[in-house]
Design a protein around this nucleic acid. Structure first.
Lengths: 407, 407
DNA sequence: ATATATTGTCCGATGTTGAAACAAATGGAG
DNA sequence: CTCCATTTGTTTCAACATCGGACAATATAT
């Protein structure tokens, strides 16, 4: 029995148009997930009369959100006209700001890539970064005029973003505190701009990527293992943000309060056990954060480590196994705390998923509170799926398909 | 920008009555939180026309959910007729099943106690417990016939409850696995029965207890420190249950994976550091789970320990301080993972809150990811507020005031 | 006594879904 | 080919909701 409290300080009453708004969004989302679909299909799925559906569909057609395509097939009787999401004359720009490089992608309203991803060295100064981004966005839109009008820019950053103001409260790796980016980028491009933490955006992308009658999941967690640990939590189909915009920071929940020092200042954070740097440090038997480092150590990447493990390097295998175990122990905390239907894992390390999966599973089972929960579904997301950029695109595209705020 | 995904497998379209249903529930909840309230007050708060409000109010009056009371005051013009939640001829029964004793309370539709709480020794056999409960419920309803018709029975248990079936999946301290209680109790009493985990129900009670324009909070966590650690999480005004009904089990998130053994089988769970047994074990310098124990140790309670700490017993103070620090470190995990607007803490130990608060705060600040988050509001809930029983009552009373499921 | 303000009700306008009739399109039976 | 059953999509009217404004009732201030 689902039961949500009404907030007496912030509710929305129903007006004459509320029913239509609700059904309109359901219809649009059904076209998105099940296209192609006819008006009669929609009426059957929604349990509405065909008359009501026709009115909604005509609205959506007029606004250019969907279009009528081929005639479909039916055993007998008049053939249905199929409806599709209009993706031909609309596009969005996705931007992934990372410490060293910034990535840029053009996507259609369903989040599919329209043009090859480009990248450039990240400019640390926010004002100059906004200017540079605006230039590159303008260029890609001119170069791909066939993509149509741009509906907005989605930006993901490695830091906390304030929900209300969209200011970047703190991005430690970037050295940013209370940075304004949205307004300057919006002013420079003349486009709506949406900014979100990268972990949260990745979770958003996974939530909106499911198609058809495939298992739909509205409670999921995305864990990104990289230089740091980014985590995004989705509960009841909504991103968990929290009162101070830090919700989901499982990377800084401890495995051991007396464990190794973490970049955040505390000891024994999950991140301090399983970040790429932690794994490499384990392999080299020294803390790689301490300079100076020999050049051959500084340029050694996690991909190199995985290669050595595959080649049979016992020390590499041991380092990977240890990370796998700690990864699983932390995932167990997520399972016990959030109990999502599915966990997605991204980052360079999943290239070695076949090597580490069983150790991860064993560690989860060691701490998960029930056998069922220990079997929580885990899916890996490889880097070439561009999870961050798809999340950035979803920031712009998803609102049109979301449920209206009501009550 | 709040954005909830529509579940294409499980949505609810709007029908002719949906607008009315939405506004009806908002109106009823406003009367609950702001009573007394006139029709005109409602129209102003809701932004509806007085005509529309009148129709809704007349519906609610006919159904006996509210009643018209005294005339109110106004500076000029016709005096308003005040509306109140009808609590005179309706009641609910709240039941708190604990390991050794079971508590029973009669409450009104706003969750206020109507008759003194009674208790009896818990019968471990579910069938016999249901029969015993039914007898006692029948008796209290006869003895308090003035309370009117009973609208249902809310039961909280120390274990996991399956959302769909209401079966008790696992209650370790009771020795229960996959136990059916709801149907047998409903059959024996002829009343609707609702069952929930006690930690989750406590969170529910806090969410629904706020009145007036006081700070409304729809993201909160309730932490109950007792023999075990019970935690309930509320996100967006909804209880977090999770895919396997274990969400919110922060009691078994580790402080140190190499820490002391926990009853759940894992090592270093938060519970193993701060449960009453853990605190007492720390005081006596021995694991109290190991039998046999001297009688004076076995009968020594956490209240006794608090008394000794207040009397200046250095060892008692040290044991309490250690628990306080671990309590804060675990709360920091909750802050970083869920980032609620407010945390409620219940249990015997809060009788010593003045002794431990600063240590708790220091520990939270040690690990919280932002200074703001470290200042997350904490409120203690004393035992004589009967948080579990109020949660049990809320299971029955809250649905009437909750938002309708839409889209 | 009069003016003004407030509450609660009433009635037609508008916008929505519900139900059913209807036109159009299609395939199969004869 | 004609006729019929079937399906799609549109149209029409009824039912139900809020919106907007008018109105009577009621109370206070002047």
């Amino acid at each position: 029995m689902r039961m949500r409290k009404i907030n007496p300080q912030n509710f929305r009453v129903a007006t004459r148009g509320t029913s239509r708004e609700i059904n309109r969004r359901i219809a649009l989302d059904l076209v998105r997930t099940h296209q192609p679909l006819s008006r009669a299909d929609l009426a059957r799925r929604m349990g509405l009369r065909r008359g009501a559906v026709s009115l909604i569909v005509n609205d959506l057609l007029e606004e250019g959100l969907i279009f009528e395509g081929m005639m479909g097939e039916s055993a007998r009787g008049r053939k249905p006209t199929f409806l599709y999401i209009e993706t031909r004359m609309r596009c969005v720009v996705a931007v992934d700001i990372r410490v060293t490089r910034t990535y840029l992608m053009l996507a259609d309203p369903l989040g599919r890539t329209l043009a090859a991803t480009t990248s450039f060295a990240t400019e640390r100064d926010p004002k100059r970064l906004a200017a540079e981004l605006a230039r590159r966005i303008e260029r890609v839109l001119i170069e791909h005029a066939e993509a149509g009008t741009c509906e907005g820019v989605g930006v993901v950053v490695p830091g906390m973003v304030d929900r209300a103001t969209s200011r970047i409260i703190h991005a430690p790796t970037m050295g940013w505190r209370d940075v304004e980016l949205r307004e300057s980028l919006a002013a420079a491009t003349g486009l709506p701009v949406f900014i979100e933490n990268s972990g949260k955006a990745c979770a958003l992308a996974q939530m909106w990527s499911a198609r058809g009658d495939a298992a739909e999941v509205s409670d999921l967690v995305f864990v990104s293992v990289s230089d740091g640990i980014g985590v995004g939590v989705v509960v009841n189909g909504e991103i968990l943000r929290g009162r101070h915009n830090i919700a989901g920071e499982f990377g800084h929940v401890p495995l051991s309060i007396d464990g190794p020092r973490c970049a955040c200042g505390a000891n024994g954070c999950w991140e301090a056990y399983i970040s790429n740097l932690a794994t490499l440090s384990r392999y080299f038997g020294r803390d790689l954060r301490e300079k100076p480092m020999p050049a051959e150590v500084a340029s050694f990447t996690i991909e190199d480590l995985i290669a050595r493990a595959r080649a049979g390097d016992a020390k590499a295998v041991a380092a990977m196994s240890a990370t796998a175990r700690y990864l699983g122990l932390g995932l167990a905390s997520i399972v016990n705390a959030v109990d999502p239907a599915r966990i997605y894992i991204g980052g360079e390390i999943i290239a070695a998923w076949d090597l580490i999966e069983s150790a991860v599973r064993t560690a989860i089972a060691e701490r998960a509170l029930s056998p069922d929960a220990a079997e929580t579904e885990i899916r890996t997301v490889s880097l070439d799926e561009w999870p961050r950029l798809r999340g950035a695109a979803a920031l712009v595209t998803a609102p049109a398909f979301a449920a209206p705020a009501v009550a």
